[in-house]
Design a protein around this nucleic acid. Structure first.
Lengths: 191, 191, 191, 191
DNA sequence: GATGAATGAGCCTTCATTCAT
DNA sequence: TATGAATGAAGGCTCATTCAT
């Protein structure tokens, strides 16, 4: 498990797992299907992972790293909190749309009994840069004082929810709608 | 002329299913486990439901009806939008805390492949009174104009997310914190 | 079981069973399906029959009586053996075609482990008039001497086999073909 | 590179299936029983076959090949049709007696809903040498002209029926009886 | 007599995992 | 390392039959 011999096989297993969970849900997953889709033998999977749970947790951490990358891209410390907020909001929204399937997996998995505490903590770590931005802005008095347990849901939950609606095709988010949502969200934080 | 179906057994099956999904997740569910927990024979479940999916969908609709009840309780038409918003917000928050497990189930199920369109639509119907409040207030110009697909996530998602944090014991929501969150949320809607 | 109260229900159960066996084979049969098809409750079937085996045996005997009726119709004692043979052969052939499904059932059932010795003997009894004809004709020296265990297969098996081929649509038996088969068969018996 | 499939297990499954069908009929068959009788785990059967139907069809084809072998053994092209007929008739009769159980299975299966068209065609192919003999003899004018759909039942059905009677112990076929039956059968074909 | 609910036993099939190669 | 065969356990579901009404 430590250092996989073939990176290609490791990747194939991860990709197959993600695809299958998206297609069939967690319930429809099985080692046999993963193996078939990945083009390896079932027993081979056990060379790379201890069991199903391990595959899913690894996938969770890999994806978390993938999607959380560059969320603060474009933000510069000299910017105003509002500017920064909007850049990060938009980045996050774009990420949610671009990686809709990955986010769906992350969300489902985070609420499943499979997830280990290690994965959960590792996952949270990815949000650190965003949290840093908010903490900094609060210290500057540019956004309202509120505990992180309120601030973060306030920022992330509607974003995620709207993006899901867009991804499901229930709603078309043109630039006007996005500006509206973003502005509306910013109003929650403006001091 | 034969034995009538037993309401008690129906309830036991529903309760057992809810408990088990909460304990083990959807993946850990099985007819045998439901039966054992409900104190009936496996085959008996099939007298009441066609299959696992049917049980879950029925549970979804039953719970949706249970938790969505009285969310607008205390709201009067002559109230200002802000007053109404705060009453409904608080009702919803209390409901989310009181029925935390039920909401967790509803949330997970709504994002699972088990849910049928019928259940989904039936579920949405329960939110009608809340939507009506918002629509009315928009017409009065008391809250900002925005499409329902933005408005609703903006209202519901942070609420749900904070309540989950509270229920998980990660955060203690004293009345001050609640006021803060509620006020912060209201800022998003204030014209 | 002795004297059924409702002849109508008895008939419905018999008919449903026959239809289902023909549609699904013995393997696909079940009390629940019979009940549904017959329009009665499952438990009701047990008022009329002890179990599945009893239904099938009764059906076997009923059908045996139905199809074997009038096989010797038209035969008169003063006729020559050849005349008699041809009348009976044709009757049997027509019967096999007319009651193709019933014969299929009888054949399958007679070779299944369901059949009891009582049913088997009762079934054989229906062939008595035909056997009598052959015995009589042998005594008259109009057909070859041979034991019944040869004579009967020689007469019945090809007939049945050809009819099955016709019923399956593999072969169209015009009057010429029938005369050919019948004549060919008669050659086996001619002294 | 893994363990190869075991011919021994394949054979054990086939043999167990044949034995069980003979003992209990198709209805009494089950994967669990086959597995137990064959001395393998239930799941192991699925390594070799897709499902019950596949087992039965394979068994059908295997047995068809076994029993149809050497039916024309001893026949030489220079022989008269009558000589050939009698050799083949006797071979077939001996085969029917020797492989009585196998023939019983083949017969039952061919009339069951399990059989696939592929199996049916494969089964017919085994009779080709016998059919060729008849066709050849008809062309030579040594046996009566009649369509194959009559000729074949005429030849095979009584043979099979008599053999069954012998196998069931209802009839002892001494050489005199056999000559009688064979001669009687030949009379049907003699021009 | 007639019914439909109730159930233990059984069905076929798939599962995660280990074993032999 | 990589593999596919092997399997005990578990899955969903149906069965014949009995029970309560």
């Amino acid at each position: 498990m430590a250092r996989p011999k073939s990176e290609q096989k490791y990747d194939a297993i991860m990709q197959a797992t993600l695809d299958l969970v998206i297609e069939l849900g967690f319930h429809g997953l099985s080692m046999a299907k993963i193996a078939k889709r990945a083009g390896v033998a079932t027993a081979t999977i056990y060379v790379y992972f201890d069991n199903t749970e391990a595959i899913l947790n690894q996938l969770y951490m890999d994806l978390k790293q993938l999607v959380a990358k560059d969320i603060t891209q474009g933000y510069k410390p000299y910017m105003s909190a509002e500017e920064g907020f909007k850049i990060i909001w938009r980045n996050q929204f774009n990420s949610l749309v671009k990686y809709s399937k990955e986010y769906w997996f992350l969300d489902q998995f985070a609420n499943s009994p499979y997830i280990t505490n290690i994965s959960r903590e590792e996952g949270l770590r990815q949000f650190r840069p965003v949290l840093d931005f908010f903490k900094q802005s609060q210290e500057n008095g540019e956004i309202k004082q509120m505990p992180i347990e309120i601030l973060f849901p306030m920022f992330y939950a509607p974003l995620s929810s709207i993006a899901r609606s867009v991804n499901a095709g229930h709603f078309e988010a043109d630039s006007e709608a996005i500006d509206l949502a973003m502005g509306s969200s910013w109003a929650s934080f403006k001091p």
